[in-house]
């Protein structure tokens, strides 16, 4: 096992474990912290895949912005511990677990047959692709339209967030 593979497996295991832990935590703050851990590991995984720029952006956007926002709201609303999971271990929950596990097994099974198994080797161009220069170039040529149109997505989000969270109705 090479060093790179070692790092990959370590990060992958931490990612999955932290995802599971996030689910099991009763306190939303702890959940959020596990999610942040999860995000950091993901960032590491991106690095192993030669996507340096994405890795940085990911850490900044998710861990830096989104999760802080989450924590902020959790604190703002002053949420306590969730009711114990056992309290509502209803039929629906078993169904939910069964559904998710089923989906997981199905994906595993299918991955076994898929053409994606040919992807054992990273493409040689992958190294160059992750750089800021390359991404910048392609973002403003081939992906110009989606890039521009996301501005409206953000605009809608800003207007909406301001409007919904505003306290009083000004007539």
């Amino acid at each position: 096992m090479t060093f790179e593979q070692g790092v990959f497996y370590f990060l992958a295991i931490v990612t999955v474990v932290s995802a599971v832990m996030m689910l099991l935590q009763r306190n939303p703050v702890n959940s959020a912290l596990y999610l942040i851990l999860n995000f950091f590991c993901l960032g590491g995984l991106y690095l192993t895949l030669n996507a340096q720029f994405i890795a940085m952006v990911h850490i900044m956007v998710y861990a830096g912005a989104i999760m802080v926002l989450f924590l902020f709201v959790i604190m703002l609303l002053n949420l306590g511990d969730d009711k114990s999971l056992r309290q509502h271990l209803g039929l629906r929950m078993y169904l939910g677990i069964a559904f998710s596990v089923g989906l997981f097994l199905e994906l595993l099974y299918i991955l076994g047959f898929s053409s994606a198994n040919n992807y054992t080797q990273q493409s040689p161009t992958a190294v160059e692709m992750g750089t800021v220069e390359y991404i910048g170039k392609i973002l403003f040529t081939k992906f110009l339209f989606p890039f521009e149109i996301t501005s409206f997505l953000l605009l809608a989000a800003i207007i909406g967030a301001v409007m919904l969270a505003k306290k009083k109705i000004i007539q």
Binding site: F70, V73, M129, F143, T150, L153, A157, G160, A161, A165
Partner: peptide, 20 residues
């Protein structure tokens, strides 16, 4: 990789809206 960027934008927008 490009799609990942857009997913991040969307996630951010959804986070803002959802929390609001």
């Amino acid at each position: 990789q490009m799609l990942v960027f857009f997913v991040m934008v969307v996630a951010a927008a959804e986070a803002a809206i959802g929390l609001a």
